[in-house]
Amino acid sequence: MSEQALTTPRWTGKFETFAITFGIAFAILYTLCVSWNWPAFTYHPAVNKLDLGWHPGRSGEGPPMHWYGWLVVSAAGAFALSWIATMISRQWVQRATAFCCIVAVSWPIFFAMSVFIANRTSFDAEFLKSIWISAIPASAGAAAVSWFVPSQWVQRLWPGWLLIIPIGAFLLLGNSLKQLFLR
């Protein structure tokens, strides 16, 4: 056991796990919430009203706001996952993080490739445009990588996800705003 491990209080290690998991989980959950529109509630600022879940704007009640609702879902989910992460061994947290992050990174890539292929083929390949089809190779690849890669690699890469995932989230969310930018 290293000298640092001997002198570091137990709560410090747990907080480290919590903080790293929270940053990664929040970025993934927030991107999902925005992309699939999962707010906990919708706020109508002009009339100061709240609706549970997603709600469209009503005539005469001004624009709806979903951002607060997305924040609540992402923060609650990330908090729960981070809390669970502090309960299990660091090695399992690192492997689970690697699996989730590889899925998060490879899923949009596989989806973009599927759509590209579906648009180019001469036969009917519309099924490839389903987001769930691309989840299969992404999950299988992530499971294989996170299971077979040596634990030293998983350990070394673990804090690095804290940079890769938020930057990926910025790119995905930015891409989702492309139409609005170019309107």
């Binding site: 907080f15 940053g23 997305w70």
Partner: peptide, 17 residues
């Protein structure tokens, strides 16, 4: 500005780390 919302939210989540 919409992108700013996203960037700030994810930045906030990085603060504990």
């Amino acid at each position: 500005f919409d992108a700013k919302e996203h960037v700030v939210a994810i930045g906030m989540a990085l603060l504990p780390a």
